[in-house]
């Protein structure tokens, strides 16, 4: 299994990758949804960590797309947005877990 990180902030994506690799996972970083789509589609036992605030195609759109896959991977949304913004996105997010930044390393470790 692999963890795919869709995050445009280089500090956040690099530290996430290092952290997850430290936990023994294969971690891959994509600065936007477009470059993620160019790669091979994720497998059923992969995990996608996606920032909701991506430039271009939004994180919410990525989540909607992932749900259309025959074998959808696990999805964790991350965001620095306020609770109101998250509530507004709730319809398209479905039951996806949303972690608010700053991220807690303990919760992240528990999830993945």
């Amino acid at each position: 299994m692999a963890i795919h990180i869709l995050e445009d902030d280089p500090g956040v994506s690099d530290s996430l990758r290092l952290f997850l690799q430290g936990l023994g996972h294969d971690a891959f970083v994509y600065p936007d949804a477009e470059s993620f789509f160019e790669a091979d589609p994720p497998g059923a036992d992969d995990t996608i960590i996606v920032d909701l605030n991506l430039p271009g195609i939004s994180g919410a759109q990525v989540i909607v797309w992932l749900r259309t896959l025959a074998e959808p991977p696990r999805v964790v949304a991350i965001t620095g947005q306020s609770q109101t913004v998250i509530e507004k996105l709730r319809a398209s997010l479905g039951d996806v877990m949303v972690l608010r930044k700053p991220l807690s390393s303990r919760i992240l470790a528990d999830i993945v």
Partner: peptide, 25 residues
């Protein structure tokens, strides 16, 4: 203010994860 909070969240997240990685190293 909201924008600022968001903007600060990014480096704070990165700092915490880097420090975790440092602990592991």
């Amino acid at each position: 203010g909201a924008a600022l909070a968001h903007e600060l969240n990014q480096p704070l997240t990165a700092i915490m994860l880097y420090l975790q990685a440092a602990t592991r190293a």
